[in-house]
Design a protein around this nucleic acid. Structure first.
Lengths: 230, 230
DNA sequence: ATGTCTATGATTAGGTG
DNA sequence: ACACCTAATCATAGACA
């Protein structure tokens, strides 16, 4: 087989538009894309002769800005200056404009606020879970997308280990609960199965999927199916 | 030889970054590039979790804006940073504010679009975590023996969810590593399997393990086996 | 003014220095 | 952090609807 390490570079990789998990990666991406954004803005200015102002707060809350014309230098002067706390004038001038919001905008704003809160909640929840996982080495909570083959293998092993325990326990419970019931003809049976069967149309749940294997023997149910990573 | 006028389109042409002369052309370019700019900003927001505000005046002086979380708060924070420049900024802030108000509907729509996408992404990623956390406070560390059927079911669902992610990721890696190899006749393949088979033999990672059962359907590999908790 | 299409130019993810 | 490199993804000019 050809070695896969033949190429000097894999080139640009497709990444999902979702928050980048790796800190270092995020930082690089932020820098690159911020530059790209400003360049695009600059081109828009030049090509169409329009005015554009952009404000960006970095992940570290550091402000960056682009502006043409003139806003640029003003904003840059802001940023060069440092943190201060006074809203007064600027705020009031903005408040003035706020009065002119029309109804449709208001409705959209309602929606936006609602969804925004929703997102924020999700995000925070995700963050706390992330911290929790990092604190206690809960591998399974880490973004799977970042794992390499090695880690995936370990993860797989761990999951299967856990799964075995789960199956054992399930079977145990089944036994306990069944020793009070009358002759049930079914055997203790607990099988982990294809996830896509859970949420998609599954022809029949006790039907062997293409390629899957049913292990009928009671008490001994693990991942039904074959083994092999690749 | 082929005629050079055979093509249905010449594709994108390189244009100088200078003011476009043709009015109609300029208008189209403005629309397209404004959309592109906002999209880039949106991606930057999502990817890096940062705050961005953009204000654009069209050639016809019509204001457009994009903002996350919203232009208002960003501008407020921005202007608040330097009380000394409040007055000189009043003009620009008024201008910007006016732009924002007039364009509020449009901008809010942009925000809605972006946030909706974000919600979708977050939701999907958060689902497995959610199940995990709901399952119990740290079920994975707890002795499985103490879990009841309900918890086991939840655990099962969570595991299968996670497993799906793992499989997807594995297939992705497989694809990436294999798109540099020549005519490999095997499909992307990753199967969770019995733990005891896992580490008996570890063939080279780009070698299909011998003895494993291949499920021919590519990209769709989960826990092989049937489903059903009792 | 916005959406579609195609071919092509521009951006950038992942490396490396 | 930044600049450079490669190869892939993405954006978009021009034409049309």
């Amino acid at each position: 087989m050809m070695r896969k390490t033949n190429k000097s570079s894999q080139g640009r990789q497709k990444i999902p538009i979702a928050k980048i998990a790796k800190r270092t990666n995020l930082q690089v991406t932020f820098s690159k894309r911020r530059s790209g954004l400003f360049k695009k803005a600059s081109e828009l200015c030049t090509l169409c002769g329009v005015e554009v102002a952009i404000i960006v707060f970095s992940p570290a809350k550091k402000p960056y800005s682009f502006g043409h014309p003139e806003v640029d230098s003003l904003l840059d002067r802001f940023l060069a200056r440092n943190p201060n706390f006074n809203i007064s004038l600027a705020d009031s001038s903005l408040q003035l404009g706020k009065a002119h919001k029309n109804a449709s905008a208001h409705e959209l704003n309602m929606q936006l606020t609602r969804i925004s809160n929703q997102v924020e909640g999700e995000r925070k929840r995700g963050e706390s879970l992330d911290k929790m996982s990092k604190a206690s080495e809960c591998w399974w909570e880490n973004p799977v997308d970042e794992l390499g083959l090695d880690e995936l293998q370990i993860l797989k092993a761990a999951m299967e280990d856990l799964k075995k325990n789960v199956n054992d326990q399930a079977n145990r419970i089944w036994l306990e609960s069944s020793n009070t019931t009358t002759g049930n003809n079914s055997a203790p049976f607990f099988v982990m199965n294809n996830a896509h069967h859970l949420f998609e149309s599954s022809p029949s749940s006790d039907q062997v999927g293409s390629g899957s294997i049913i292990i009928p023997s009671a008490y001994d149910i693990g991942f039904a199916g074959n083994i092999g990573l690749f």
